[in-house]
Every structure is written in C-alpha cells, then in structure tokens.
Amino acid sequence: MAPVIQTVNLTHVYSPGTPFEQTAVDNVDFAAERGEFIGIIGHTGSGKSTFIQHLNGLLKPSSGRVLFNGEDIFASKQKTRETRFKVGLVFQYPEYQLFEETVYRDIAFGPKNMGLSDEEIDRRVRDAAGFVDISEDQFEKSPFDLSGGQKRRVAIAGVIAMKPDVLILDEPTAGLDPMGREEIIGNIVRYHNSGENTVIFITHSMEDIARIAGRLVVFSKGRIFMDGTPKEVFSRAEDLRSVGLDVPDITLVMMKLKKLGLPVDDSVYTVEQAKAELLKLKGRGKDV
C-alpha cells in the first residue's frame, strides 16, 4: 500500500526573483506510513513549518509533488480541499485562531465546513472535546474566557473534530508549563492510539519527543539531515550538535557516566530506560 502521505523532490522558494529569495525547503523526499508517530526536529529556520504546510496543500511547492494515499493533492482544487480534511494541521499558537462565540461552535467550524449532518457534527464535537479533556459544561463558554492551555486544547479539538487520517502539529507545547505540556502530549497520544492515525509532531523539546515518537526526522537548512528511530538519532550526538540541536538531558547524563567508565548504554533517551540501565548495573553488584 502507498504511504499515507509522501513528498517527492519537494522544494519551496520564498519570494522568488527578489532580493529576499530564499529556499526554505530543498528537495525533500519524505514518506509516512499509516499509524506512525513521527517527530520533526530542527534548528530555528530549518524549514519545518514550511514543509508541513505543503502536506495539506496550504503552500504550493515551487517544484516537486505531494501525494496523499498515492494521489497528487494538487491534481484539482477539489482534491486539495478534500485533503485539507484528511490531513489536519494545527499551527503554532493555535489559540490565536479561535473566533466563535462558544467553545462548541469553534470546535464545530471544521466539521461544518465539511458539510456534515448536524448529528454527525454534534458527535464529532463531543468526541474531539473528549480527546482533549474539555468537559461539556465548558461548551457554552466563550473561548476567549478560557486559560491559555485550555484555549490551545480547544483549538486542537477543532482540528481533531475533522477526524483527519494524518494529524500534524506545529510545536503544540510551545509556551506551556510542564503540566500543560504533559496534558497536551497525553491528548495527542490518545488520538494516535484511537485508530490507524498518523501523527506528525514538530517540537523543540527533545525530552517530549523522545518519549512519544517512534521515528524522528531531523531538518537542517531545508533538507532532511537524519531520519530514524530516536535511538538511532540520539546516538549521533555530535552530528546533532553540528546542526544546532542536542540530545535529551538524560542521554547526556548517560554519556557522561559511560565516559567515566561505567558500562552503561548511552543511547537511551528516556528516564525510564535510564533507570532500567542503572538498575541493571546495581544488579551486577560489586564490580562497579
């Protein structure tokens, strides 16, 4: 079966033919399979946001193609519009796009644009709100009266309500406290597990992404610099540093320990794994 979403030789040039010309995405070949949870990381300005806006047809490639289930999403206007509903995109700081009078109506905006029946819309709004822990007694509130974290969850629900096959989020945890981040990550994982949904997640937090993604794609200067499991990517700490990134703190700790002569695996990247590693050491007893 064809990958659910795929790009072929994707290139995007901003302001071509002016002094401000800039190639933000440079010849990127990328494919995501159904059910994958992919983290995209990369230094500021590496082209992550530009790249993902092609996946649902918001930006048109300067050259190259974008395929959804093997079909070109720019084949016709109709096709592009359909893809918008199948590939849900949550922008950075999505809370600034809320506009309706009530939370309920804001979440219903997407499904309504899809032309669904009232019952179906109602079902989807309730489902989506459930995913992001927005309770029904908040439905009639104005979205502008919610807290920052709640606003953001409502905005994410507004995209989840379209039941996209691919959910893409641009730095969904930026600017939240640890608790708020934890909640949002939990919500997204819940959506991912609720079916064969693909999730693509841009982040600057190595800690967050290390725990939840099954695959990491590293962007640098508009190209894919690395692509692999978190273990593979974080084992190349030097290369990551060369493109302005770093490994999770816990990996750094383990690397230090290894340097100090402890026989530990330094490519672990979550606290749980590190704990298991250290307990193994303890089990081995006196030779440490």
């Binding site: 918008r84 509903f85 796009q97 997407g110």
Partner: peptide, 13 residues
C-alpha cells in the same frame, strides 16, 4: 496570512 492558513486548514473558503 497565518490566521488565513489556519482557518483554511479547517476548511474555510
């Protein structure tokens, strides 16, 4: 531009 894109992503026309 950004808000427009965000609403288009939710099917606004």
């Amino acid at each position: 531009d950004k808000i427009m894109s965000a609403q288009k992503a939710r099917g606004a026309d």
